[in-house]
Amino acid sequence: MTAAPLIDRRAGSELRPALRRRPTRFRGAILMFTVPFMALFVFVYVAPIIYSVVQSLFATQSSGLGFGEPEQVFVGAANYAKALGDTEFWAALGRILLFGIVQVPVMLGGALLLALLLDSAAARWVSVYRVLYFLPYAVPGVIAAVLWAYLYSPALSPFVAWGDSMGIDLDFLGPNVVLWSMANITTWVFMGYNLLIILSSLQAIPRDQFEAARLDGASEWRIAWSIKVPQVRPALVLTGVNSIIGTLQLFNEPQVMHVIADAVSSSYVPTMLAMGAAFVKNDFGYASAVSVLLAIVAGLISIVYYRIAMRSDA
């Protein structure tokens, strides 16, 4: 987000003259390898950002009864002001933040724990477990959401039926529960994937470090906590950033649950809010403003997370 406009400015003013002074070798080849990707990158990543920002400054306006041809009017920051004053926007943002604060640590904590268990001396059949854990990743997110929606739906759910037979009233779709029901779907799909990244990182730690610790009388838990965990921090940072980005664009689960759950409104998460503004209310300016605000939040959170995760490294 922040880096993208930078390259435009530099490329125009500073970089070109520098290149002219000191021509780079293999310029043709470099261009041939990088330009196709960069052109598409600009088209698919940079241009939509600029487009969003521009679009967010306009609003559709009609007059009288509203049946004349609507026109696009420059409104400055009005769409941003509207978003910041919109309780639905804050509610949607609050939901994904709450979701992220709970789901990301639970998922990564679970993945780390399972990875440590798989990496421990007590584990057997590691390759079998590894594949089983990874299996849900092969289920497309929206299909996973549909699958779990059926497992939650009172009419069809074997869990609800089982609860009934035990006299327990299970409700996965209640207003205070449904967010966590969705968190479970995300966790189910991505935990194994994150686990494998962490596990790969664990397995790259030279084994003699553990031998030395064992000779000093350290317990397995002690080794795991003091030797293994610090060394997989980069993997945790990576999976953490990925998960945060994923959380901010949470869409599949609420979109699917919206069909069956009263507690999931049409603007439950920011992506749904933006989509509704665009394709139900025909308010592309507002949709763009919401997207831009969310991108800023994404950038801030990633930077803060990265800073915190890396600082404690020292």
Binding site: F67, D262, S267, V280
Partner: peptide, 22 residues
């Protein structure tokens, strides 16, 4: 009305709130 598509969405969301008691 000319903005009923928005009203309709709000009505549907609102009915869900009625169902959940809020």
């Amino acid at each position: 009305g000319p903005t009923y598509s928005s009203t309709d969405t709000a009505l549907t969301d609102g009915l869900s709130k009625v169902a959940t008691g809020s």
